[in-house]
Design a binder for these strands. Structure first.
Length: 430
RNA sequence: GUGGGUAUAGCUUAGUUGGUUAAAGCGCCAGUUUGUGGCACUGGAGACCGUCGGUUCGAAUCCGACUAUCCACCCCA
């Protein structure tokens, strides 16, 4: 197949028959964000490369091997955003939004780009909904963040997600923990799998999560994070849990959760499922108390999460959650002959001014074919306009389900008459 | 980057031990005496059988390479 008609690897089209699903979940997300007091922020798809290497972290996989980076004609290095947090943080600083009062609560919908090998639930272009909250170190903010995510899932009818939380500590105590882990795993170095040996240097916490039986057996007696985090971090983590308990949000503490982005501190959390394949994290987030400072701002403890919209839709599909179908055509007006066709066009326009959906023939088809089309698009009513109707100034509204017809006049009163019939139709329950 | 599976119309598939113009269902378009949809019937469009090369008198079918796609590792949403 020619390249012209082939989408780029790892990208996905949302087709007309499916777009209502996206609109539905986005709508719920938008409303929930509002309910929690978050306001939408829209940032560019691309940023200076340095923002991501600094923000996300020079040593992360995302920065090291997954970014779409290119140079401009002016020789600037630009990168397609691999995630949403850095761009939002940049905008916060650039426009000094924190001067509007703290905390700043922002929501966003973004497309993200990572050069990875596609598989189930993993694309090179994917979409996220996220929330960010800047300028608070209180555990209440962590709990609110988690609660907002949980609340989106609830609204979507998803109850099969488990919430796992952990604390990875602040830079100070994490350093100690990493040391302890390294020392522990060093002694088993010859038994660990290859990936874990490489993890030993870069991110020893990842070893705890290894699926290889030998590694996970060794991991059992490894030092535990929660024994190493400092008093402040521990207190904070306990605080978060108290708030979650108070809000009746179920969770499990999973000490193996590690986020792959460098900016995370203290609380990290994931909403996970095992029914959509290996990429089971539908939502992930946490606190990033050091990020704003890292980007040149003041110390500003902050936190956020992002959920993957594609993964969410896959999950809803797997769970058999029905997404309400969009409204179908309210009236199809068939035109017969040239005069009829003009009249149909005119009346369809009139109907649309009332917010109802109207269609008429734009192909030049015969009556029978027009009726077939009306049926196919699920029109609630149809009306045929030909010379007779125009001469008598009267038409027949046909209920497509029952076949019943109602006579109406085609003058200025048409719309009112149709609306009345339409309201009755909707009231009967369809 | 490393593995494994798959590749025949828009979709789902058939294609027998290699043998003429590659089938079917669904979908699409048109019609069934030029004013009414669903059902039924008739007809039509639509496939270089993923690509290139090889074996053979002959390949959708056998072999090889490549490409695409799916799944897993890794990583993340």
């Amino acid at each position: 197949m020619s390249l012209i008609t082939k989408k780029v690897k790892g990208t996905e089209d949302v087709l007309p028959k499916d777009s209502y699903k996206w609109q539905f979940v986005e709508d719920i997300m938008r409303k929930e964000a509002q309910a929690f007091g978050f306001k939408e922020i829209r940032t560019p798809v691309f940023e200076h490369t340095e923002l991501f290497s600094r923000g996300v972290g020079e040593t992360t996989d995302v920065v090291q091997k997954e970014m779409y980076t290119f140079s401009t004609k002016g020789d600037a290095s630009i990168t397609l955003r691999p995630e949403g947090t850095a761009g939002a943080a940049r905008a916060l600083l650039e426009h000094a939004i924190y001067n509007d009062g703290l905390p700043v609560k922002a929501s966003y919908f973004v497309s993200c780009y990572r050069y990875e090998k596609p598989q189930a639930g993993r694309l090179r272009e994917f979409h996220q909904f996220g929330l960010e909250c800047y300028g608070t170190s209180s555990p209440a903010a962590d709990a609110e963040m988690i609660s907002a995510a949980a609340s989106v899932f609830k609204r979507l009818g998803i109850d099969k997600l488990r919430l796992e939380i952990n604390s990875i500590g602040c830079p100070k105590c994490r350093k100690n923990y990493h040391e302890a882990l390294k020392n522990y795993f060093e002694q088993y170095k010859d038994k660990l799998c290859d990936t874990c040996i490489s993890r030993l240097e870069r991110n020893p916490m990842r070893i705890l999560d290894c699926k290889s039986p030998i590694c996970s057996e060794i991991s059992e007696n490894a030092p535990k994070v929660l024994d190493y985090i400092c008093d402040e971090c521990r207190e904070h983590f306990e605080g978060v849990q108290k708030y979650l308990d108070a809000a009746n949000i179920e969770y499990t503490v999973n000490p193996t959760i590690v986020r792959g982005l460098d900016y995370y501190t203290k609380t990290v959390f994931e909403f996970v499922t095992d029914c959509i394949g290996a990429q089971g994290t539908v939502c992930g987030g946490g606190r990033y108390d050091g990020l704003i400072e890292e980007l040149g701002g003041q110390h500003m403890p902050s936190l956020g999460f992002a959920m993957g919209i594609e993964r969410l839709l896959i999950l809803m599909d797997k769970l058999g959650i029905e997404i309400p179908k969009p409204e179908t055509c309210d009236i199809y007006i068939a035109g017969l002959g040239e005069k009829g066709s003009f009249k149909a066009f005119e009346i369809a326009s009139k109907v649309r001014t009332s917010g109802l959906i109207a269609e008429t023939d734009v192909v030049g088809r015969g009556l029978r074919a027009q009726m077939k089309y009306a049926d196919k698009i699920g029109a609630k009513f149809s009306m045929v306009l030909g010379d007779d109707e125009i001469d008598n100034n009267k038409g027949k509204l046909k209920n497509m389900k029952t076949g019943e017809t109602t006579e109406v006049s085609l003058d200025d009163n048409f719309l009112i008459q149709f609306q009345k019939v339409h309201v009755e139709y909707m009231f009967v329950g369809n």
